[in-house]
Design a protein around this nucleic acid. Structure first.
Length: 663
RNA sequence: GCCGCGGUAGCUCAGCUGGUAGAGCAUCGCAUUCGUAAUGCGAGGGUCGGGGGUUCGAAUCCCUUCCGCGGCACCA
């Protein structure tokens, strides 16, 4: 007999070889019906798996939402693959995992006549989805069989499934080759699966098709990927689809147009035309960042166009030459034969500033900041609104310090980054350490040193935040010249954005021959720390637009107040109210048009103006205003001086408020 | 860059299998002075992304190019 221990501590004896389903049935019929899979000694397994030893067992049911969804989505991927092969014989299957909110499967379909790749189109999705529903209705059981490597390869090779054969070759030698059948269809898979296809349910939808490289490598052929979403019930599916619609409504590209913030056009692919209101946001953000840097940093400005020798020295020419904008004049002077590049980053410029004149150890750490405009020729398919552009402004800084100061500087940067994010309401932050990549510059000794310091700092960040900040490691994701911390924040609708970064760099100072004079009079190489908080100001603004859905807090709103009249009797009064607002430092407009107040309220509400001050005859006589706030139908009439004081207080940026309250 | 899809008035979109452009909103003009999410009437506005081809005839079909969208790859 074997002994099974349940999560509540209860223990029961069973015959060896009993399956999970048998165990569930022995407990309750309802449990056998509800169970989707089981966890045996912490490993998720099929319910049909025979149990041969003493074990801890936990059943996974639909109530275990996250686990149940992963199972359902994974199985939905298999069902989709069966549907595709039934509809389009000869299509090769590859991999099909569960992902956040759904699943995908990558296929390779070739035109039978020409042999050319024939990717799926969206028009085919309804047909595939209908076939999936048929397969689910058949409710065939998933059954697992283990077979030898050679037998499995032969089986898939016979079907012409060359990608699957490659996958089998990639499975480590000590692992079983598992095949899952659903009816007559089968697939190579590590499992586990639901008891049968019917349990996938009907709350799914195929969403889109996309190209995806085989094994994620752009040198490999491109497969055709179909994405789907799947949920436990129709209500969750509907909620997810609604959420997508909501996300679309706050898309910064859409709001940028609707709110007249910026635009793009053909002649400037990937570069932003900032309109007055968008530029106001940009300026507010920059002014905020400058205040935050005032205490510890010196702001500098390095040239936009520099001889390529600087980029050769830094190593960027070798690494990123293809993505740099080269600049040359059309003249024939000797100078015009030189090759210049638009700066893709600020570090070489800052090193020149550091190198200009002798630097003493007493001057370290030297923190040079720049709101530097950089240009990178991004791949055409990479561009995405403000989020990925070819010309952007980094809130960049380079800290030159001694080896001994490095850890403390990293912590200082960490505190600043977290404090900045908090000012915009971002409290859920993740910090990951990216370690040395395969292709890199510098000796292993330097990398060892940098990584060891950063590992310690990461532990300290985690410890000091009391677990509020999540930390992790991204192996091999570091920059070519050094390891880095990457700061990821979560926005109002749960999406994650990687923004800040801290990079410890022993390499560039060496390559550029930067040094300082130490206490003993010797030349020493400084450590250079690259850091950005917003990352790209353009992108950070895109994130803010989406996070606030255009409803900016008063201190950021491009137009903070609109004074709107009801009749022309109030024109003079409204104009004086407007004038006082502007004098008090508000970004305010006045609307004296001969339109009904309903019309004006609607228009300014749609423009997401935070405050409308309505002035009619009554207000003009009494020196009051009717305050209407965005997002509320209510309006409160109060003396203008009172409203002005209240709004002035609200419009104080969070950092200024904090500094003031600290006094 | 790669795969798929798209580009018609400032915006959102219609225009079926080729017969030489249409709506709503916005804009402009006139009337209306109306107390918290659309006042009425009228007018103007497009070489249908660019180039080439097929055709008696192309927004519609074909080729090519640019730009965008969704992914993939990339992200110093």
């Amino acid at each position: 007999m074997i002994s099974i221990t349940f999560p509540d501590g209860a223990r029961r004896e069973f015959e060896p070889g009993v399956t999970g389903l048998d165990v569930a049935s022995s407990i309750a019929k309802s449990l056998a019906k509800k169970a989707l899979a089981m966890e045996l000694d912490g490993v998720e397994t099929d319910l049909s798996e025979p149990i041969g030893r003493d074990a801890r067992l936990r059943f996974v049911t639909r109530d275990d939402t996250a686990e149940a969804l992963t199972l359902i989505r994974h199985d939905a991927a298999h069902v989709m693959a069966e549907a595709v092969q039934e509809l389009f014989p000869g299509t090769q299957v590859t991999i099909g995992p569960a992902i956040e909110n759904g699943f995908y499967y990558d296929f390779y379909r070739a035109d039978p006549a020409t042999g050319a790749a024939m990717p799926f189109t969206v028009d085919e999705l309804p047909v595939i989805e209908a076939k999936m529903r048929e397969i689910i209705a058949r409710n065939a059981p998933f059954t697992k069989s283990v077979m030898s490597r050679d037998a499995a390869k032969a089986r898939f090779a016979a079907l012409g499934e060359t990608f699957k054969v490659e996958l089998i070759d990639a499975i480590p030698g000590n692992e079983d080759i598992k095949i899952y059948n659903q009816g007559t269809w089968f697939d190579l898979c590590r499992g586990p699966h639901l008891p049968s296809t019917g349990l996938v349910g009907t709350s799914f939808k195929l969403m889109k098709v996309a190209g995806a490289y085989w094994r994620g490598d752009s040198n490999n052929p491109m497969l055709s990927r179909i994405y789907g979403t799947a949920w436990l019930n129709d209500k969750d599916l509907a909620a997810y689809l609604t959420m997508l619609e909501e996300a679309e409504k706050r898309d910064h590209r859409r709001l940028g147009r609707e709110m007249d913030l910026f635009h793009f056009q053909e002649e400037g692919p990937g570069v932003v035309f900032w309109h007055a209101k968008g530029w106001s946001l940009f300026q507010s953000l920059t002014a905020y960042m400058r205040r935050r840097l005032a205490e510890d940093y010196s702001e500098v400005n390095a040239p936009q166009v520099l001889d390529k020798v600087l980029w050769e020295t830094s190593g960027h020419w070798g690494w990123y030459r293809e993505s740099m904008f080269q600049v040359q004049s059309a003249g024939d002077e000797a100078d015009d034969k030189r090759v210049f590049a638009l700066k893709p980053m600020n570090c070489p410029g800052h090193i020149q500033i550091f190198k200009h004149g002798l630097k003493s150890y007493r001057e370290l750490p030297m923190r040079l900041a720049e709101f530097g405009m950089v240009h990178r020729y991004e791949a055409s398919g990479a561009m995405h609104g403000l989020m990925r552009v070819r010309g952007f402004t980094q809130d960049d800084a380079h800290i030159f310090c001694t080896d001994a100061q490095m850890a403390e500087e990293c912590m200082k940067i960490n505190d600043l980054i977290l404090s900045v994010y908090a000012d915009f309401g971002f409290d859920e932050i993740m910090v990951k350490l990216s370690t040395r990549p395969e292709k890199r510059v510098g000796s292993d000794a330097l990398w060892d040193r940098a990584e060891s310091v950063m590992t310690d700092v990461l532990a300290k960040i985690a410890a000091e935040s009391n677990g509020r900040i999540k930390t992790g490691i991204n192996p091999g994701e570091g920059a070519f010249y050094g390891p880095k911390f990457e700061y990821t924040l979560r926005d109002a609708i749960g999406r994650e954005w990687q923004c800040g970064t801290t990079q410890v760099d022993f390499n560039l100072p060496e390559r550029f021959g930067a040094f300082y004079v130490d206490a003993d009079g010797s030349k020493k190489e400084p450590v250079m720390i690259h850091r950005a908080i917003c990352g790209s100001m353009e992108r950070f603004l895109g994130i803010l637009i989406e996070n606030f859905a255009g409803h900016f807090p008063l201190w950021l709103a491009p137009v903070q107040v609109v004074v709107a009249t009801i009749t022309s009797d109030a024109d003079a009064y409204a104009a004086s109210v407007h004038k006082k607002l502007v004098k008090a430092g508000f970004r305010a407009e006045v609307d004296l048009r001969n339109e009904k107040i309903n019309y004006k309220v609607r228009e300014h509400s749609l423009a997401k103006i935070p405050v409308i001050l309505v002035c009619g005859k009554r207000e003009a006589e009494e020196g009051t205003v009717a305050v209407r706030r965005l997002g509320s139908q209510a309006n409160t009439v109060k003396p203008f001086v009172e409203a002005l004081a209240e709004l002035a207080e609200e419009a104080v940026p969070p950092d200024v408020k904090r500094a003031r309250d600290a006094d």
